[in-house]
Amino acid sequence: MAGGDHNYFYLRRLHSLLGIFPIGIFLFEHFFSNSFAFQGPERFNTLVETFQTIWITPILEVAMIGLPILFHAVLGLIIVYTSTTNFVPYSYYRNWMYFFQRATGLFALAFIFLHVYSARIAPLLEGRHVTFLDMQKIFHPAWAKWFYVIGILSAAYHLTNGICTTLMTWGITVSPRSQRITAVASWAMFLGLGAWGLLILRAFL
């Protein structure tokens, strides 16, 4: 096989790695810092102001979040394109997880795009930082609330199931038993992360 062909293996491993570090780590950080919303609008606004006025923040946003997500998304779309669904005749647990991993990936991508645009880029174009009130306005329409609920849950599932399959892909969990344990652990993590995300959303309503 041609040497250049191996690049594909490196790209897929990079895709897998980026999903956890930095993207997955960032999701935790994002939930953590947005948890300041629990303490009220002032604390939230102060935090956003503090974070977004540090000079290194835009660099980190592009290098540690934007570019990795862009790479993950482009290769992810190719992966989705080369997949099919056959859970009707073959209705097995991991086959459903395979389908949901791709479906949540697509939804999370659309969600992240609109979320970043409305909460980061749009205020930036107006030369200011997003506020608690802005977020409330974004959440105002009923569809937006549901869009966020599904978006948050999609991102949480995509990460937690992704951790589970990454462990298989990299050959860490080989035995069916270890794969079962990590599957249960990933669901526990999904419930925790999903609930946390939804509570943050509720803090704005």
């Binding site: 080369t82 991991r94 991993q101 399959t165």
Partner: peptide, 11 residues
């Protein structure tokens, strides 16, 4: 390890 190889498995 090329296109269509092991890395394409979707588990």
């Amino acid at each position: 390890m090329g296109m269509g190889g092991l890395a394409d498995c979707g588990n």
